[in-house]
Design a protein around this nucleic acid. Sequence first.
RNA 1: GGGGUCGUAGUUCAGUUUGGUUAGAACGCCGGCCUGUCACGCCGGAGGUCGCGAGUUCGAGUCUCGUCGGCCCCGCCA
Length: 599
Amino acid sequence: MGALQRTHNCGALRKEDAGNEAVLMGWVHHRRDLGGLFFIDLRDRHGTTQVVFRPDDDSELHAKAGELGAEYVIAVRGEVSQRPDGTINPDLPTGEVELVARELLVLNASLTPPFVLEEPVKASDELRLEYRYLDLRRPHMQRLIEARHVAAHATRAYLTEQGFLEIETPLLAKKTPEGARDFVVPSRVHPGKVYALPQSPQLYKQILMVGGCDRYFQIARCLRDEDLRSDRQPEHTQIDFEMSFVTEDDVFGVAEGLMQSIWRAVRGDELTIPFPRLAYRDAMQRYGTDKPDVRFGLEIVDLTSALRESEFKVFRSVIEGGGVVRCLNASGCAGWSRKDIDTKEALAKKWGAKGLAWAKVDGGSLMGGISRFMSEGEVAAIIEGTAATDGDIILFVADKEATVARVLGNLRVALRDELSLVSADEFAFTWVTEFPLFAWNEDAGAWEAEHHMFSMPREQDLELLETDPGKVLGRLYDLVCNGFELASGSIRIHRRDIQERVMKVVGMSAADADRRFGFLLKALEYGAPPHGGLAPGLDRIIMILTGEAGIRDTIAFPKTYSGLSLMDGSPSDVEQEVLDELGIRLVEKRVPAAGENDD
RNA sequence: GGGGUCGUAGUUCAGUUUGGUUAGAACGCCGGCCUGUCACGCCGGAGGUCGCGAGUUCGAGUCUCGUCGGCCCCGCCA
């Protein structure tokens, strides 16, 4: 960098600095060559400052500036000068001043960038990921990176203040074949054996509690070898914390304070705490999902008992078959055309409904659609139940309860977007509690843990473990915000006998349990304290905080949908010597011949 | 594992429906002019294996099959 030493960053200079000398270093963002005057917008992660080269001051320097290309890294020594009247740029924090160049040093040239670093960026995701180092220079990306840092810092500060210890748990962990697929790491020293990269620090943090490390946290990478989505990456980061001698209220209190700290640090917003709580069964009934967006109403209304005797055969037969009839009141949408309604019905069918019944509200009664099948008493019940008024349209779905919930839940969110019912600056947190501990897996013909098998059943449900597992509610909770699951946690099982009973429900033999989780079961026998915790997803928190559509850009180096890293080309081929050392032999995947069943 | 969609200049796209002369635009890049611009402006120019491979056809960016890659959805994600 020659004899030059940076005095300010590119977002720092103000008119108070006028008259002083300054040295700036950064990237050539834009050039404007007016023939005589030559302007450069010099950019670093703090901002942009205009540098001006004047031929009258130094013609040699002016000529040298003309050689600069986009994204050259340069150092400029010059005089901070207030801009002449009428040339102030009000859109730039540094817009009242410019740096009049006296000395220019090219620290490194740059090839012409493959895409223009502009906002909003026009380049494809593919190109941006291949040249991630260029993409990261964009102010938008810098804001996301900074937001992530600020959130992480606020997390450490808050949890430390609350008496938590930051403890790292292993990345090379025991493979416990449950849940998602593991990323597997072969052991060289122990041929044929593998480590697994952790899907979460779950077991280690429980054992930390047994180890007396009350109040642990970790900003932990979690790895899952499953297919990707716009909000799913093979590695994601959780703010994982666990506490001993606590109940749900203690965990909630810490989490609420944590969210408050993060929102305050990143956005300057003050979240209202405590967050409201909603039982799982109520969430499913009223919102059709266990991660409801409660920023708006449009709640699902159950009409099953009111329509039990309905003349409308579809409803009556569904109810007789044990199903339910529920509806949404699309307020003010009675103006929908037949085509509008058909569009909604097509959506409903896509989500599994057999149809979408409707009726418009007019003159205090129901009109059109299925209204002619409704008795006076039923009309009154529908209007009262939905609090409908003239100009509304009621949308009904009749089916098995799970189907109705899914369809109306999805429809509710679709209407939110179509009718612009929410604003981006609004954050509605909700605790969803009292989840069932087990779900019946139709295909496997077995009970499965709804969340994971280390969550404590409610005490009053313990006796149902062997008799009616489907009725057992767990001390499980999710933190939901704006329709996203932001965190998931539970009060854990701290007694071996209960843990073994739960494992038995999900079909795990004593021998299996011992082979996979013996170390945990053993630990539980040595004075494991009652404990519980939560794991908020950092990527999703940043996504919501910044209004991003997915988590990908909240991560500095993300993977594509197919799990590739386009910048460095991983995953990549492996040398034969490496395989030999690990005792691994690759086999060609067998390609089935034409007409042959691939099985 | 299944489905949808896209792939054309350095980039973002149009052109593909209905195969047919020399594949266009904008931005970027290069050259020229320009002393107050900040998406500078004006003039000119270069730049293409139409992802890749087969096939159909007198003829393929356009049709067919395969393949690779991006995005999105279902399954999956305790």
